[in-house]
Design a protein around this nucleic acid. Structure first.
Lengths: 143, 143
DNA sequence: CACGACACTTGCAAAACGCAAGTGAGTTTG
DNA sequence: CAAACTCACTTGCGTTTTGCAAGTGTCGTG
């Protein structure tokens, strides 16, 4: 992986160079919480990311080895994206964001039950998420 | 506080509307980890934020009630910024970012010991951070 | 009252973004 | 097997946001 010159020696600053972008984290959210794995699935998210931005963010996430890709088993044009171990370790960050939001953004009554459960029983929910990711990998990764 | 029209009903998406910006989180980092409270102190961070960006981010953080301000006890031009309860509740997010970075950005050998300790004894470090914030408040907030 | 410190503003060039229209490889259909 | 379709990704371009430098107005100080 190429060295990206960092703006400071601070760990948080360097993490933000990778993650400090709305779209990047929304893609990661889709991977964790909505079981999405394809380009068109990310495109379909309600925030309506533009295609060029999505392409760019997927590229960066691949470069940073937060996600990996495999060819689609049916067609040769599509690809499947999934979280690496490094990517899966981001769950605490997303989880704490969801917990904070569940506490301080009460206007979102139509909240996905998942987020509410993340606040009330975070450990169990995180286990379920990891279980779902593992299940997908068993079905799609041969090695 | 004015209603900001949100791009989706997703909690994480709405959190990212507030936090999904590098500079915003760097200001919060300075408040948590480096005991900074003044405009010029944020400016002095090694990432060298521009004055207009800093002004904008402080304004947004105030609007979102993540930080609050008081007049400087010595001069009437300066202000002191500090984290509200809502802002202090962001520590798990910053903490999990620091932990992830400490694990996956090992190139940063010159890492602040704080971050290393956040990985090895996160609870204790978070207690210390809250203690430091409380100490500052006792010295500066009259009410 | 002149000077400096300071938070904040302004002007402008550069970068990022959003949108619409491609592109090209692969797949399906008649 | 050729035309139509799907899909990830690219390109062009107008708009928005950012970064940087210089400036502004207010206040404290000598």
């Amino acid at each position: 992986m190429e060295k990206v010159q960092s703006r400071s020696e601070c760990v948080i600053s360097n993490v933000l160079e990778i993650l400090g972008d709305k779209w990047t984290l929304l893609v990661i959210r889709d991977l964790f919480f909505f079981n999405k794995h394809e380009f068109k699935e990310f495109l379909a998210s309600p925030e309506s990311i533009a295609t060029n931005v999505l392409t760019d963010r997927l590229k960066r996430l691949l470069q940073n080895e937060i996600i990996a890709e495999i060819p689609h088993p049916q067609t040769r044009t599509r690809k499947l994206y999934y979280l690496t171990e490094k990517g899966k370790d981001l769950l605490p960050i997303l989880g704490s964001m969801a917990q904070w939001g569940a506490k301080y953004l009460p206007d979102l009554e139509a909240m996905q039950p998942l987020y509410e459960r993340l606040r009330t029983e975070p450990k169990k929910v995180r286990q379920e998420i990891h279980a779902q990711l593992n299940k997908w990998e068993k079905e799609h990764l041969k090695c």
